Structure formats: structure tokens, C-alpha cells
Amino acid sequence: MSTIDHSTEAVVIIGSGAGGGTLAYELTKQGIECVLLEAGPYLRGEDYMNLEWEAFNQMAWTDARTTSGSWRVAKDFPNLPAWIVKAVGGTTTHWSGATPRFKAHEFKARSTYGRIDGAHLLDWPLTYDELEPYYTRAEDAIGSTHRGGRPPLPANNNYKVLAAGAEKLGYHHYATGPYGTNAEPYDGRPASVQDGFNFQGDKNGSKWSTMVREIPRALETGKLDLRPNSHVAQILHDRAGRVDAVLYLDQDGTLHRQAAKVVCVAGNSIETPRLLHLSSSSLFPDGLANSSGQVGRNYM
């Protein structure tokens, strides 16, 4: 692993999940040094606890937080932790592994469904055909079943009952779906043992995550400075408004400043907008990258 000085202007990536972990690998294999800041610990397969509530407390964001709004959850459970992982690999270590593709019409939601009151529904700027090669590339990296000649996962009893019912009703197109969990050994990962803990910490390493695949390979390049337990508090900029540093707290609560020539914010759908708002300044009173006023909105 590389050690990059705090005063060196580096490519700084915030978050080590699907976006951040993948970017760290893609850049380091091209010879570009990166600092990867992850708020949580570096949990490996041997660290996972195959007990549901213990696994939740081990992996999830359980930091104190508040909730607002008119929904009753804001009153009943104001500090309810989200099942969003705070650990190296991010929520790729927790996701179900399902890898379905969007249908072509889903890229044109506004055109397909029309205007919806109270929503900012828009068509994607990309089409399915433009994204299709990248779907294939991602599926091959992940090892998605049903794709690239890879076999499906074995059907469980629930699936067999539903499939029999579908067949009886006249349906002929049904399947276990594409998943990023190996049905047979692939890309150095073993086949799934289907132990029931694929979701919250796969000890077997059969399910793809950036913790299992991209981050170890990025570390092998010698170009990655991985810093777990590094909670980013603010993104800084110079007088011209160009981002030039990141402030983060280590596990002891010590504040550090990492110089940056590029910052990639890949926290997740909650932590990314929160950090952009926390990084407001006199130049950017509504937060960074928020000239639209939409950062943190349209979550649903």
C-alpha cells in the first residue's frame, strides 16, 4: 500500500463502496496514486458475525443522527440507524447482489409516464444502447449469474413454489434473476454455500463487493493509500472556488487536512449530499455542487 503525505495534492476519493472502490481500482491500475477515505473500519470476511442483529451493529451506520419531517417515523424513531454500511467496501458488502438491467423505457421516465405533480421526473441523458457496453463490463467484473454464459444460482424452495404457480397461470418467462453471487467458482471467488448470510456480510467471499475484488487489487498496485476509520467532515476550496483539500477525523478524533487536486465524493445517497451541504462557504452558501438547489432533494 502507498503512503501519501497529507501535503501532497492527490486524487482523494471519499467512500469505498460501489463508486469509490471501483474508481480507486480503475485509477490505480492506470498508475494514478489515490487516497481512499472510508469512515468505517476495514472488516474482512473472517470478521463478519453470522448473527443478524450483531451483524447490523457491526456494519451499519449507528452514529447518532436526527430525523425531521411529517412522517411519523421522525417522531417515533428519530435516531433509527439506516442499513447503510460504514466499513471498507461500503454497502456492496451488504447488498442482496441483484444485478438487473434497466429496461429501455426506464431511461425515458418523463417521456413514458408524463409529468407527476410534486416530482422532478426527468428522462436520463443516456439511452440503454449507450450504457449497454458498460452493463456488460460491470456484469463481467461482478460475475453476474445468467450473463456471459455464467449459470444461475440454484433455486430454493420459495422459488420452486412461485415458479410452479407461475407455470400454472400460463407464465413462461421466469428465472432466479441475475445476481452478483457465484453459482460456481469465478474470478478467484468460490461458489456460494447459500448459508443465509449473503446479505449482511458474506464470510465465504462468493458475493462480489469492492472489499473482496476492487480494493485488494488496487492495494496490490502499490498506488492506493487506503485510510479506514477516516470520517470526512468538510471539503475545502481556494479563493477561486476550486476544491483543494479535504478535512477528516481519524478514529481518535484527530482532525487532518489532505491536500487534493481532484475529489470524488462517493459517500452514498445520504452521506454525499450531507457532506456537500456541510461544505458550504461564502462562495457556495447552499453547499458545493448545488447551483441547481437540488442536492439532497428527490431522494425517493
Results as ranks from 00 to 15, higher is better:
245 A>Y: 01
245 A>D: 01
188 G>A: 10
173 H>A: 10
54 E>W: 03
88 V>N: 04
57 N>Q: 06
149 G>K: 15
288 L>A: 05
82 A>P: 06
145 T>L: 07
94 H>G: 04
209 S>K: 15
218 A>S: 06
234 Q>C: 08
246 V>I: 03
19 G>R: 12
271 E>V: 04
254 T>P: 06
174 Y>P: 14
144 S>A: 15
211 M>Y: 04
293 G>D: 02
248 Y>V: 05
277 H>I: 13
99 T>R: 11
174 Y>L: 04
72 R>Q: 03
40 G>I: 02
132 E>M: 14
223 K>L: 01
281 S>Q: 06
153 L>V: 13
106 E>K: 15
278 L>A: 13
199 F>Q: 08
283 L>C: 05
227 R>F: 00
298 N>T: 06
112 T>M: 08
219 L>M: 10
83 W>C: 13
85 V>L: 01
248 Y>G: 08
284 F>E: 02
150 R>H: 11
148 G>W: 02
96 S>G: 12
143 G>R: 14
228 P>D: 00
104 A>I: 07
136 T>C: 05
180 G>R: 07
90 G>D: 03
51 L>T: 09
205 G>R: 14
202 D>W: 07
298 N>W: 04
218 A>D: 02
107 F>C: 08
181 T>C: 03
246 V>L: 01
80 L>I: 11
221 T>M: 02
202 D>H: 12
224 L>S: 07
273 P>M: 00
271 E>F: 00
264 C>E: 02
102 F>D: 12
135 Y>T: 12
36 L>G: 06
65 R>Y: 00
42 Y>D: 12
53 W>K: 15
73 V>S: 03
218 A>H: 05
278 L>K: 11
159 Y>I: 09
197 F>D: 02
99 T>K: 11
127 T>S: 15
277 H>G: 12
22 T>S: 15
25 Y>K: 14
133 P>N: 14
30 Q>C: 05
173 H>N: 11
77 F>S: 11
82 A>K: 10
66 T>F: 00
162 L>H: 11
91 T>N: 11
283 L>Q: 14
84 I>S: 05
171 Y>M: 07
260 A>N: 05
